[in-house]
Nucleic acid binder design. Structure first.
Lengths: 166, 166
DNA sequence: TGTCAACTTGACATCGTGTCAAGTGAGCCA
DNA sequence: TGGCTCACTTGACACGATGTCAAGTTGACA
């Protein structure tokens, strides 16, 4: 909080006048990023897809591109998850919204008859949600040094391999 | 440190006589768990495998069963990664050892001609390493509530789908 | 009996979050 | 012009966690 106040050019106490806690500052930051980066617009392509497979690809592309944008604040929120219940709920809510996107893609795959027969929609959503988690992106792009393009291509392939039969 | 000292029945300062820092206590704990749970023995099956595919399955099974054992201390070490360089290095070392297992399975797959043609061994190892990360286990087993058996079966399938052609 | 090692109590420094009190200064309105 | 409000300031403090330091106790062993 001191660092941020200094960077902004106000006193630490003034920062607390705007954001009562560190968690609320981080949460407000994610909301602001969403707005500035027009996350809703980016998801339009996935909502417009005609087939489940297309929707899956479009959603993975949109979310995959979003991750690096919120990763800074996301990492901070994730680190607080086990100590600050407010931060935990806030991040869980965001991840739940992302899960909706996963569920929608899975439902469309199921409608097309393209979902693996041995998976329920819930299990398939869990799986896709995990593959697309911020942690996997961190692992591949930060720890392993993959480019964003490499990440995207491989994760799209992996999502198909995980959910489609054969 | 206070909680642990109280649980053990000694003073906080006595704990510091045994482990100079919190990080070193956690690292010593992982070493102790490895020994008590005979991790080396568990990996014997994977080292004895005749084919790459068998080795992959055996390694995934061994590591997948290991994760819940070290998850408590692992989570603590992971949380310290961005603040404590010593903890960071210690956990990175352990994960690197795990990566060796991934690389060995990948190499055997490549020897058998069973590795996807469009993957280098390094990329394949990165991918397998990420799929098997503690974070993915947390996501599926803790956040999504999967059983250990479900996790294992699905991750084995996913590892095959990710690395083998077709 | 003396020594040593493990442990004790108790105090203290540091760092980060969050709170509280009192004061300042600019804009605005009657 | 006088007074009000709002955003901000400085400065202090509580609290919890890690880690350090000093001095004393206790029991085993030579």
């Amino acid at each position: 909080m001191s660092d941020i106040a200094r960077a902004v050019g106000i006193s630490r106490q003034a920062l607390y006048l705007h954001f009562p806690t560190r968690a609320e500052l981080l949460i407000a930051t994610t909301r602001h990023i969403d707005e500035v980066k027009d996350i809703d617009g980016r998801l339009a392509a996935s909502r417009a897809a005609a087939t489940g497979s297309e929707r899956l690809d479009a959603f993975v592309a949109a979310w995959g591109a979003y991750i690096p944008e919120i990763h800074g604040v996301g990492r901070a929120l994730m680190a607080m998850q086990h100590t600050d219940p407010e931060a935990s709920r806030a991040w869980a809510d965001r991840m739940d919204a992302m899960r909706q996107g996963c569920a929608a893609a899975v439902a469309m795959l199921a409608r097309d008859g393209d979902l693996r027969a041995d998976l329920t929609e819930t299990r398939a959503t869990d799986l896709l949600w995990s593959i697309l988690s911020v942690r996997v992106w961190e692992h591949l792009c930060l720890d392993c040094g993959w480019s964003q393009a490499d990440y995207l291509a491989e994760i799209q392939r992996l999502a198909h391999a995980a959910l489609l039969p054969h």
